[in-house]
Design a protein around this nucleic acid. Structure first.
Lengths: 104, 104
DNA sequence: CGTGTAAGGAATTCTGACACG
DNA sequence: CGTGTAAGGAATTCTGACACG
């Protein structure tokens, strides 16, 4: 009710391994290339979110197609920008709706 | 996209401890009393869902009020029944809607 | 009843590195 | 570039039990 379960970083690498079918090495490598950014607990253990898991699967698919990390990184940057633009449009729409509901 | 993040059992007891503020002992005790049922990994490590975490918090609140495990258990059984009844009503409603949309 | 704790073992995770290609 | 692996250490988790009340 309070949190966003999808983006909360609570999953250890062992579970991510199960969920994605990737090796720990592969999972960590994606962090090395900045494609995912897990949190760390106090003692340094990586914690991933369900979002991270989904991202990892998508990355793995790209790589199987022969796409290199740098290009994947570029695509993700682009998608992120588009998502943010969409978010801005939605917020403006919300503002307008609120305005007309109040004013008239 | 495919799974229900809220009910997927992927969280280890250490994280549940952080999330709820309860001790490991307290968390395990609730399992002993059958108030929550975490999954187990191959080697026996407990895995909880976000739902379990929410349930644990609610249980802890009840206990602070002095309610005993058995009564908490009864209340939960009751709430579960009500939830299922509501689910059945919703499904029947869906059936009816589908029927009328098709037949006329 | 609900929770703390010491005990000993088993499995997890981490980093830096060497290897292959 | 992407991934496997052996290495050694640090932290996690588990169970059964004794304790207090």
């Amino acid at each position: 009710m309070t949190d966003d379960y999808k983006s909360k970083k609570v999953i250890s690498i062992g579970v991510v391994k199960e969920l994605t079918g990737l090796s720990e090495r592969q999972i960590r490598y994606n962090e090395e290339r900045k494609l995912i950014l897990p949190d760390r607990t106090a003692n340094g253990t990586r914690k991933y979110s369900f979002s991270d898991v989904e991202t990892l699967v998508k990355i793995a698919e790209k790589r199987e197609e022969g796409v290199q990390s740098y290009e994947i990184s570029q695509e993700m940057r682009k998608e992120k920008k588009e998502g943010e633009a969409q978010m801005r449009r939605n917020m403006i729409r919300g503002q307008l709706n609120a305005h007309f509901r109040t004013k008239r």
